[in-house]
């Protein structure tokens, strides 16, 4: 009663209620996940020479938990997650060496089977490309839509996932037997939050 009185007597702005939309908001972040370390290798005999193709390399990100790490405080009120974009950056590929990469990407939701996400070719890795678009929700191209949907649902459920890559080097010329570099993925994610119905 006192609080009710306070609401009135202190001349508060009494809210009669929100409209149909309630209080809804989109909160978006472009989230950079931990780099994936990749080692591209050639036999010692062909260092400095053109190698048409290298054997496949399998790497993955380890468990990623975007929703809990980045949207934890909103999770209870989140209606859905949308993945707007996925981009990649290649970092630290050494100057003097060169390669193209054929990459098959998969996602593996915790406790579920692996799903194919997309296949790409990266030419001239030695240019260390920055923020190259892999997926855009407005132009999804050949990306596996079902995998994206699964990923969005996993975000809502707070389920972690892994991104896996199988890389094959083509037209590779390395100045050392092993070349180490990093793949860095960014997920641009929107959480739609409904705070008051």
């Amino acid at each position: 009663m006192r609080k009710t009185f306070y609401l009135i007597a202190c001349l508060t702005l009494v809210l009669w209620g929100c409209g149909d939309a309630g209080v809804q908001s989109d909160v978006s972040k472009n989230i950079e996940i931990d780099p994936i370390a990749v080692r591209l290798s050639v036999p010692a005999l062909v260092v400095g020479q053109l190698v048409p193709q290298t054997p496949p390399i399998n790497v993955n990100t380890g468990q990623i938990d975007i929703s809990s790490d980045e949207f934890d405080e909103y999770l209870d009120d989140t209606e859905k997650f949308t993945i707007n974009q996925i981009t990649y950056t290649i970092d630290n590929f050494p100057a003097g060496s060169s390669a193209d990469l054929d990459i098959d990407m998969t996602i593996e939701l915790q406790g579920q089977s692996v799903q194919q996400l997309l296949s790409i070719r990266v030419d001239n890795v030695q240019n260390n490309p920055v923020d190259v678009l892999l997926y855009d929700k407005n132009a999804p191209g050949s990306v596996n839509a079902a995998a994206i949907t699964s990923l969005e649902q996993a975000l809502k459920d707070g389920t972690s996932f892994r991104v896996g890559m199988t890389l094959v080097g083509e037209d590779v010329t390395l100045q050392t037997q092993d070349v180490d570099f990093n793949f860095i993925f960014k997920f641009d994610v929107t959480a739609r939050i409904q705070l008051v119905d």
């Binding site: 009494v14 809210l15 209620g17 929100c18 409209g19 989109d26």
Partner: peptide
């Protein structure tokens, strides 16, 4: 971060016929 601009409360939509501060 990117966030939707805050919404108005739409006070005149439901109960009172016009938008007013009481």
């Amino acid at each position: 971060i990117r966030i939707s601009a805050p919404t108005g409360l739409g006070i005149d939509e439901d109960i009172v016929p016009f938008n007013a501060v009481p």
